[in-house]
Amino acid sequence: RAQEVPEFQIKGFDTTETPNSFKEITTYNNFYEFGTGKEDPARYAGSLTTDPWSVEIDGLVSRPGSYGLGDILAKMDIDERIYRFRCVEAWSMVIPWNGFELRQLLELAGVEPSAKYVRFETLYRPEEMPGQKRAILDWPYVEGLRLDEAMHPLTIMATGLYGKTLPNQNGAPLRLVVPWKYGFKSIKSVVKITLMETQPVNTWKAINHREYGFYSNVNPEVDHPRWTQASERRIGGGVFAPRIATIKFNGYEDQVASLYKGMNLSKEY
């Protein structure tokens, strides 16, 4: 039986597909800081204090320091971006984010010419994040991007969805969104950004480098060792909806394939 490929286009930044509902986006989450169940974040993330919030930007930047969230937001252009979102576990959603381009924030701190990578860190606060009391991951959660990936106009820091303030379970108050990579790259509740010369080690790669790479670009041709990445289940289809085909770079091939020219994507996964 042929798999259904959803009809969609990427127009400007947005996909033409119908977004998932607010309820779907906010009740089915992976945020192990609040537990490993999909409903755990919605259940337990209410306890997280997101105000006051600041982001430490350090490393190879000309203006290192602690940036208050209010000060950051005052300087940023908040846009809506309707992005496809593909989890490494082979499910997907379409999400109308609100946010600003990460590039703007990095330019605020002034990237030094020697910087080649960006490292991100999630808040570590076990008294408000009950999942951090268990050693499921090596806390705090860390992610990373190559500088050109970080500067790409598709890469945003989200501050909301559906025009509302970002719910805690979705990574409030400030999270990364990189729509052509598996969801775990889009690190939540960011408190620290470091510009580096060497490639940072992201949390999932540190746990199992065979299963999770640094790049983690959505790629139906490169399977996860334990499951196929060729197809995905779109959340919200109900009991009888079939899987849909997964698309290289999650449908953003035209926009991002040039970043990986000459790389063997099955080796650098």
Binding site: R1, Q3, W227, T228, R233, R243
Partner: peptide, 16 residues
Amino acid sequence: LDVRIPSQIIADLYKR
């Protein structure tokens, strides 16, 4: 309900 695609089921059985 979940996989449904015969080729993928067969591949899963020996690859996963």
